[in-house]
Design a binder for these strands. Structure first.
Lengths: 344, 344
DNA sequence: ATCGGATGATTAATCGATTAAGCAGCGGTA
DNA sequence: TACCGCTGCTTAATCGATTAATCATCCGAT
């Protein structure tokens, strides 16, 4: 504010220099300016600064569908990483629609974001936007900046189940068009030995035929010999768990169930879900760091304009969380029912 | 951009007038300016505009804890309402901590938001911030701007259960310090007739003693005669449902379970949860509208500065969603088990 | 005594859009 | 003919912060 300058009888430039510590200002005057600024409750106008510097200090967060249950984790992590780096986060929801996504990106640019973090919808390719972009999808996606190692997460789950003795799995996915889900399924399958049999069930396909919220027919699968259900998301794991329970099948004594993502309900359902967790904090930190760096390096107006951040592709490991929904498969006959099934 | 002005050999002011339709500009020139603007891919700088007009076109969304499973709905609805009104949404997470919440609000102000929507943490009173604020909590909270009619939602659930014939309820809440939860419980109790017995279980209290994720002891409650469990959130309903199923109690034949909020998993678990839904779209629309109006009316620098929006307190009705988790209570003896329990 | 250099502060231009005020033509009326 | 009023556009100031360029001192060294 010029008010600070007037109050002290100095020029606005001096105030700016004092507060930013850039120019040459005597220590004594700097102190006085600081105290007056505090006293007057001075808040620098981002608008003025943005206008002059060309940097708004805001990044956009583009999400495929906010209603995704994983979203809270993502948003929270990105918001934390961004605000630690001094950036604000502007959200944009594409509601699953590509046209809306494009429009949302445009609006973010109009708002003057310095860059954006995009979590693309099911393998959407992000067209060249006019600013630095960090893509969080899955390591196998071209152009991806950073993501959890979904493939290895799948491997860990499969490994866990095989070690417990399971030989007949049902993998439950939602939609094979999702890069993330495909990687998870790929990882699961990769860790199966030759003597392990695994089928895959895609929920959306089933629902196209039988309607939304239809039965997954899991009890029949158990009858066929399946002893473990590995879902590609905790949401589907939950669906599987309750369907099995409802059919009178005891989890984990008669069948094990695993999920992905460690969503909010995983620890509190009974039995608590064995799942695999992403380190969203780290993913967000890396994404934001890459973005901030790209924003900083954007200066040279020439060179490849608006190129996506081509930081070294980072995989962040996932962490297996073993809880009560997995156990040794039943031996031929149904084992005696134990009320509090614990992990061996 | 001045580039448009130069390209056509007119002044920047004319371009501004033409695009905003304010001043006096000939129709023909306006057209030419429009087309050149489109051709050059002109995007008005929000920074410049904000600096001049003092309006950033951005509102802040302050949330108690993004990891709340209800958050996606809120964020999506607010984002939609705001962007329909031409505003961007800057998010701020208070991570459940009041100090961080205060700091987050400060940061939003530094970023120059025109106003903010605050979903306060458990009845936190929002101190006087220096800009228009819309509070979304519950109608009984002083200073609340708009919210779902949680109380009536509770009434609807209780009414539904009583009509089915339940006479012994267990109400499951998390923390009695929450205004929202208290209203829901209050509504539930209000609709109970004199011959209906209801206890209340607060999860956080129980967990302080028995540790996180502990058993709620619901099977024992069933043995005591409870036939319906009314949770104050779908998350707790889910916890109750799985605990009951795990204990071999059939829902809804032996016990009914209800939730609140219609969260993402409610329709897909088995049995699908009977719950009550908020009209977040409407709540968000009202909140944003009130905010926008307050922002517009803020001009007169004098008068009550930065007073919270004191729009007429609005209650938005909640909608009962009856699914499969509620049914007539068992008659004295355990009824025959039916695999597909449907609503009568 | 004078000049070079360091120090501490000021001037002024700039970012991009908005907007009040001003100016030039043109047509119509008294 | 002279003046009013309208139209269409330009001038210029402004918002708040940043920053290169400039200026005024004062000190030490030659």
């Amino acid at each position: 504010m010029t008010r600070i300058a007037n109050t002290l009888g100095v020029s606005a430039a001096t105030v700016s220099n004092a507060l930013s510590g850039k120019g040459r200002v005597s220590a004594e005057l700097t102190d006085r300016i600081r105290s007056i600024a505090a006293e007057l409750g001075y808040v620098p106008s981002q608008a003025g600064r943005a206008l002059r510097t060309g940097r708004s200090g805001v990044i956009g967060l583009v999400l495929p569908d906010i209603s995704n249950p994983l979203f809270p984790q993502i948003a929270q992590a990105i918001e934390f990483a961004a605000s630690s780096a001094g950036y604000g986060v502007l959200i944009a929801d594409s509601r699953g629609d590509i046209a809306i996504q494009t429009r949302a990106i445009e609006r973010l640019i109009e708002r003057g974001v310095d860059g954006m973090v995009i979590v693309p919808r099911r393998g959407t390719r992000i067209a060249d936007v006019g600013c630095p972009v960090a893509v969080v999808d899955t390591p196998s996606t071209p152009g991806n900046t950073v993501a959890a190692d979904h493939w290895d997460g799948g491997r860990q789950i499969a490994d866990h189940l095989v070690r417990l003795g399971h030989r007949h799995l049902l993998i439950i996915g939602n939609n094979p068009a999702s890069n993330v889900q495909n990687d998870r399924v790929g990882g699961l399958r990769s860790a199966l030995r030759e003597d392990v049999c695994a089928e895959t069930l895609w929920i959306e396909r089933l629902e196209e035929v039988n309607g939304k919220g239809c039965s997954l027919g899991l009890a029949a699968k158990v009858a066929e010999g399946v002893t473990a259900f590995a879902a590609v998301s905790d949401l589907h794991a939950l669906r599987a768990l309750t369907e099995l329970q409802r059919a009178g099948i005891h989890v984990p004594e008669q069948a094990s169930v695993t999920g992905f993502d460690d969503l909010i309900w995983s620890p509190v359902v009974t039995p608590a879900l064995t799942t695999v967790r992403m380190d969203m904090a780290r993913i967000a930190a890396i994404a934001v760091e890459a973005l901030v760096q790209a924003i900083g390096a954007e200066e040279p107006e020439h060179s490849s304009v608006g190129a996506p951040v081509s930081a070294p592709v980072s995989k962040v490991p996932m962490q297996l969380v073993v809880r009560q929904s997995t156990a040794t498969p039943p031996t031929t006959a149904t084992p005696p029912f134990v009320t509090q099934g614990e992990q061996p």
